[in-house]
Simulated scan of single mutants.
Amino acid sequence: MTLSRRLVLTLGGGALATLTMPARLVAAPVEVIEMRGSARGERVWFSPRGLAVPAGSTLRFVNRDKGNSHTSTAYHPALFDRKRRIPKAAQPWDSDYLLPDDSFEVTLIVPGVYDYYCLPHEMAGMTGRVVVGVPADPGWEGPSDDTTDLEPEALSSLPPVDEILAAGRVVTEPEE
């Protein structure tokens, strides 16, 4: 019996799809973090500003602020010479400026605490924190205690790790 090329490709493609299916089914979901701002632009924030996710999760930062551009920038010496506030083995990220409705994705693999900020709005308290995994995970790194290069507004807007772990997400809209 001679198999046609089309039949071989069809069967091979079906087998490949079946083999990769379990990987697609167990992939971590994409978590959305919105960049927000008040109508007049006097307040800006990430929503949620605290998030707990499993290792391997992808974060999608979406600018929902019609009046401002924003960034999602990890605190790291390689980016604007900032103190490192992500796990040592983790890769830093910078979204560059996102215009309204633009988005940026990053996948976090290393367990620990990741702090990030909006480059033009950090002094307005536009910071966020993601907790990847739990403290019992191998290699997990807690939050940095070096706050020498943080303004009080940036530091005070970072939710505590235990609050993030207990709630899963911390959403706090600024007062109007």
Rank of each mutant, 00 (worst) to 15 (best):
S57R: 01
L51I: 06
M21W: 14
R49F: 06
G56F: 07
F46H: 08
L98A: 00
V30R: 03
A23V: 13
A27P: 13
P87Q: 03
I86R: 00
I109C: 01
E31M: 12
G56I: 11
A55N: 06
L59F: 02
A90Q: 05
I86C: 06
P48Q: 08
P87A: 07
V32M: 07
S69N: 08
P77I: 14
H76F: 13
E105F: 08
R43N: 09
L79Y: 09
R40Q: 14
T71R: 01
T107P: 06
N63G: 07
P87V: 11
L25M: 14
A28K: 10
Y75I: 13
R84M: 12
A39P: 11
R40D: 15
R49L: 14
V106F: 02
V106A: 05
V30N: 05
A78T: 12
A27G: 12
F104E: 02
A89F: 02
V44C: 04
M35P: 11
P48M: 08
D96I: 09
F61M: 04
I86H: 00
D96G: 15
L25A: 15
L25D: 13
S38V: 13
H70A: 02
V32C: 05
E105N: 07
A90R: 02
S57K: 03
V32N: 06
G112N: 01
P48F: 07
V26I: 15
R49G: 15
H76K: 09
S69W: 07
V26E: 12
M21G: 13
P111R: 01
A39Y: 04
S103Y: 05
A90H: 00
L98T: 00
A90K: 00
L25N: 11
S95I: 04
N63H: 04
S95G: 04
A28T: 12
W93C: 12
K66F: 11
R60D: 07
G37A: 12
G56D: 09
P92W: 04
A23T: 12
F80C: 13
R24Q: 13
P92Y: 06
K83L: 15
R49K: 13
R49Y: 12
P100F: 00
